[in-house]
């Protein structure tokens, strides 16, 4: 479903400096890389694993919710924090958020799995995605909507 997301993983092949520094202070380089990642698509998810193979239940649940909402794969990018320890450490500081996954919509931090789950239940998530034009466009020829009224 989010196949394109995999091709959307740009530049987290960062070169590690050969000295160690406390991970709490993220380098300018990684901050810029995250800035870029956050801006790379209208909907951006930092997750464990890939959309096809999430490697954590919370990341899996979040991907499923986004899929159910009808997020347009063209407008979605996912970044696997397990591929890059530096990203994994830095994203928590960047978002001031202690857990993964983390969802951004149009550059704004939305929340983690709990918040997304709750927003999906109340309909806020659909509203947010709709307002940011992040859903699969409805087509005339598809069976996007069907009026089903019981015959009486």
């Amino acid at each position: 479903m989010f196949r394109r997301a995999l091709t959307n993983i740009p530049r987290f092949t960062t070169v590690r400096p050969n000295f160690s520094y406390p991970v709490r202070f993220m380098s300018t380089e990684i901050k810029e890389a995250i800035d870029q990642a956050v801006a790379s698509s209208p909907v951006v998810l930092f997750m464990k694993g890939t959309p096809e193979f999430p490697q954590c239940g919370f990341s899996r649940a979040t991907i499923q919710l986004l899929g159910q909402q009808g997020v347009d794969p063209e407008k979605f990018a996912a970044y696997n924090v397990l591929e890059d320890q530096e990203l994994r450490d830095a994203i928590k500081e960047y978002s001031n958020w202690p857990t993964i996954p983390q969802l951004y919509v149009k550059g704004e931090f939305v929340g983690g799995c709990d918040i997304i789950t709750s927003m999906a239940q109340t309909g806020e998530l659909a509203e947010l995605l709709e307002a940011n034009d992040a859903l699969v466009p409805e087509t005339d020829d598809g069976i996007e909507e069907a009026e089903i009224t019981p015959r009486r």
Partner: peptide, 26 residues
């Protein structure tokens, strides 16, 4: 709102959350 509530909790429990593997809150 939800985000502010979560941030409040995350900040109050910073060390505890950092030390565990998974944390989910309502």
């Amino acid at each position: 709102n939800k985000l502010m509530r979560h941030r409040l909790v995350n900040n109050a429990l910073k060390e505890e959350i950092a030390g565990i593997h998974a944390f989910t809150q309502k």
